[in-house]
Structures are given as structure tokens and as C-alpha cells.
Design a binder for these strands. Sequence first.
DNA 1: GTGAAAGCGCTAACAA
DNA 2: TTGTTAGCGCTTTCAC
Lengths: 333, 333
Amino acid sequence: MREVAKRSGVSLQSVSNVLNGRTSQMREETRLRILQSIRDLNYQPNVQARGLRLQCTKTMAFLTIDPAVRFLSDPFHVAILSGMVDTLRQQDYGLLVQGFHPDQAGGGFRRLVHQRRFDGAVVHLSGSPDRRSEHIEELKSTGCPFVLIEDRAEASTAACVLADNRGGAAAAVALLQAEGHQQIGFLATDRLWPAVEKRITGYEEAIRTSGGRWSQVWGVDRETVEGARSRVEAILRDDPAVTAILCANDVLAVGAIQAAKQLGRKVPTSLSIIGFGDNDIAQHLDPPLTTVALPGVEMGGRAAELLLAYIQNGKFDAPEVVFPTKLIRRGSA
Amino acid sequence: MREVAKRSGVSLQSVSNVLNGRTSQMREETRLRILQSIRDLNYQPNVQARGLRLQCTKTMAFLTIDPAVRFLSDPFHVAILSGMVDTLRQQDYGLLVQGFHPDQAGGGFRRLVHQRRFDGAVVHLSGSPDRRSEHIEELKSTGCPFVLIEDRAEASTAACVLADNRGGAAAAVALLQAEGHQQIGFLATDRLWPAVEKRITGYEEAIRTSGGRWSQVWGVDRETVEGARSRVEAILRDDPAVTAILCANDVLAVGAIQAAKQLGRKVPTSLSIIGFGDNDIAQHLDPPLTTVALPGVEMGGRAAELLLAYIQNGKFDAPEVVFPTKLIRRGSA
DNA sequence: GTGAAAGCGCTAACAA
DNA sequence: TTGTTAGCGCTTTCAC
């Protein structure tokens, strides 16, 4: 910057003014001269120095708590990130990605915030509601603005972006009941994600309010296709009267389909399966997966927008944004 | 930090010394007192200020050129990122993610580097070899260390991480020829990724050296399942004598399988299909996809390690790291 | 062993 | 309209 000033024969301040658009009371000629020097020297302001002064980083973070080292293998996370990237790149904001192991998450958030690595964060928590509350309190106490995905927080520095998981689960149950299913089970992940909790709630409510007599939630310890397959095989052997399974996500649904094949149960005639997520794979399975679509990309994009607006105006446009979910009927139910 | 110093009754300097391990000539007692204050105050050094002084950011970047806004939907990118995240989080390094549109990439790299947002970058380029060379020159000229994925660069500030794509393609061709196939085609993406180029080269070499008479490379403009499906349908209608297709990636292979089904050609008996990547979906397709596995996670991890070592020692441990690929035989060939 | 002073690159407040 | 000064939080050099 000093170079630019020297080259244009002006002070550092004037250069700074041009860069920040404070150009109202400056001679057009000077402005152009400075602009030219900037271009000649290929100058770019140092975000670090600028940030130190302005107390901002031009960076947004995506934080999650996931026991899996490869937390990016969760397609929902990737969708959120894609949405964020898209919004942020238009504003010259960078995206910092960080996943925490459940055990380290405690001090982890606080540490990162104190390091001043970002101006705001989109956060996707997991764990028991109590644990999550603790984390939310911790985030609040940092003063750093954040947007929760699929979770709620009462705070002026927080907002949340949710999908209508309960509605989605209810729609899925309704479809299955309309097809005459009496024993509809729910295959859940052991790790508690807030969205999964809501899907379970939606499922149970739907069964109850429709006068259904039978409901059952099973857990899968390994959240993989293999894990789901072996679990579902055991379930079906145990209780062959189960005719429909609503799965907490599409990956589990893939495992469920495999289990059905393994046991010689035709999908959907002998066993109906519905997933959650509408991942890329869903429509290419055999049979194509009936699933509740989640607008992950849109959610990530909106979360980033909310954060950006907070940084500009000091408050959130909306404390809460709810996205609809949509049951996509294909061949598995 | 000022707080910590005051609380411990020492100078800022001493606190800084403790934080940076320059503790050799300091009374143990003082050291412990400072450490305690740090803990009491929950102090974390401000990476921004520290970085400004030290000219480093404790952040690494992943940069790619991908026309798709959702460049993260490429499973290979996600794998690279996963590997990087894993390595970086152990070193308290952050990960910055940025995708460029081919048209903006030109100045984009330079801009980011000049902004001093990161200490090094893992870069996955695409485009024609000439274009890529330009970008590599630009990266070199910034002086910022970088590791190329699937591409080469001669520079002291650069290293590269490659997979044996040629070998993988050759193995795939060998398998198909051993099964008696005479007309093996290659389904490529229109967008030129260096890895795809190498797969094509490997394919053509293998056909030639084995005395094969027929070879053909088709391009797919839309890199989606749909795009591949319609392209392959046209291809097969045009020349039904084609009995095997080697696809540039697994997504295209999914489309090819669908096309085969559409035309009533059984896979693998009437049409053999091999993919590249071994994505999560591959083994859950019907039939399970025979594919050349790429160690994306390992490559990303190694790339980050190389960069980290460069930052410490001022030079790369190795100018080039090559990973093997592995043909995984399943049901589609 | 510890403290004081300078400066990384930038911007806000004030002075000219 | 433009230039000067101070300071963001940290580390480094040098003096004590």
C-alpha cells in the first residue's frame, strides 16, 4: 500500500480512502491516478492487517461435531457447505471448515473464536440435547454471531435455519399408511443429531394421531450401509411382520434395501423403505429410493446470508428460518 | 495477553516467551504462574495479530477450478478435503475452501494469495494443458507454496501429489480384454481434468500395446448421470458392437449402467462397464460397479503434510508423490 | 531473567 | 481535499 501511495504521490490515507469507497470528497483525477497505480502494482489489501484494525476477518466458518473423522462424507454437510461457498464467494468472504470430535468440542469452539479466525459461524451440533445446550451456551458466551443448523437458540447473537423434519416424517408415514402398512418402524442413528430427533418425533406423532397401534424405533451404531444392513437383517428376522421402514437418512436406507434383498423380500411389495435426504445416490438405487428431500444447499446459503447481514447491521434479519421438506416418491415405497 | 501479563505481574514479553516455548532461561515458578493465568483467563493468542507479525496465517487453502458452482459435489474433491482436514486439525491449522469459475480463476489465485489468507494451498486445476500451465506459472510467481493434485510443476515452491491413473486405466483395459472384449470405448468428461487426460492416455496406450484395433473416446458435455445416460444411449444405438465402456468417473458409469438397462443390454454380459473413483455409491449400485479406486483421502492428507513440512523447513520433502490405484472387481465387468 | 520500543499493514480521528 | 498520528495484538531486538 505504501508503494501505491508513493507511486501516486499521495498519502497512505488517500489510498485507503479509495479502497474503501470513501471517495466523496476527493478529486476524480486523484482517485483515478490511485486506481491506476493499484492496478499497475497488482495490489491487494492484506486482509490480515485490515482485519486486525477492523476486528474482522472476512471469513466465515462451518463448524460441526461429528465423531467421524471424515465428517465431510455426510452429504448433508457437503450440501450446507456448497450453499455457503456459493453465497460467500460473491462477498469476497472465505470459508473455514472445521469438524470436532465430540470429546474435544467443549473448549474447541471457544478456542477457535478467541483465536479470531472468523467473523461468524454456521454450526451443526450433535449429541444429546443437554450436551448441545451446553455447546450453545458456550457459543453464546463468546459473543461471536452464529447460525445453528437444525437446532434452536435464544440469543441476540444467534439465529437458526431448520427444515421441516417433522412434517417430512409425517408425510412419509401417511404415504405408508395409505398403502395399508400397519407395522412401520423407524431406523435411527445412535448418534443424536437434532434433525433425527425431529424425524423421530414426527414419526411417532404421525403414528399416534392416526390411531396406529404399533411403533418402534431402532438404533444403528455404525452409521454406514453395512451397519444398517446387518441391523435390518436382524430386525426382519426377529419380526417378519414389519412391512415398512422409515430410515433416518438415505445411507441407512441403502443398507435396508440390501438387507431386504438378502432376505428375499421384494422392495416395495414385501417391504417398503423410505429415506431422508434425497442424496445424489437416491434416484440411482435399485429400486430408486422414495425419500424426504432436504434443501441442504439452500439452508447453507441462507445461513451464510443471515450471518453476513448480522455483520452489516448488527442484528439478524430473522431469528429463525424454516425450510419445507418434500416427499419424493420413487420406487421403494 | 496484556491481561495475562498484568495478572501474573510480568511483562508482555514473558508471556510471549511462554507461549512460544522460549522458556529456557526463565524461572520455573514464573512460567507456571503465567501458565495458570493463561488458563484462568481462558486466553488464546489472536492468530490475526500474531500472523501479521509473523507473516503467517495458520491456515491452508484448497483451491480448485470447476465450472460447477457446487464443486463440492465432486466426491474426489470431498475426499481430498477430508484428508486435509484430518492432517491439519492436528496442527491447529485451519482449512479455507475456495472454488473458482474457469473465467475468474485467472486473477483469482493471485488475489487470494496477495490477500494473505493462507500459508499454502492444495490446488486442483482443470482446463486445457495450456490454461493449466498459465495458472501454474501464476501460482509460482506469487511465491506462495502450493501442492498440485494430479498435475506437475517445476518449481521450488511447488510439489505434486498424483495417482497412477495410467496404470489404473491399463489394468481396466487388461481386464476387459481378458474377458474377450474387442470394442472397448472410453467415456470422458468434456471438461479437461488432468486425471482424466491420464486415464485416456492409459486407455489408448493399453489398447495399442495389446494390439487392439479399435479405440474410441467419447465426450460428455454434462457431467451428470443424466448427461452420461443420454450420451451412452446414443452411442450404443449408433454402434451396437461396442461391448465395453471405460468411464472417466463413477458418476458417468452410473449413467452408462442406466443407459444399458434402458436399451435392454444386460450388465455385464451384454455390456461391461468400469468406472473410476470407487465412490461410496459404487458398491451399492445394481450391479455393483467394477471401478478403479483412487486414494483421495490419502492424497489430500499427504498434500497437507507436504505443505506443512515446507512451512517448517523451507523446502518440500519430496517434489512428487505418486499413489497407486487399484482395480476393484465387482459385478459390472 | 525482565522491560521498553519498534513495527507487521491497515484505518479512524483529527489537523492542515 | 489531503496529510499526520495513533493503535489493533503480537513478536523481536536490544538494553537493563
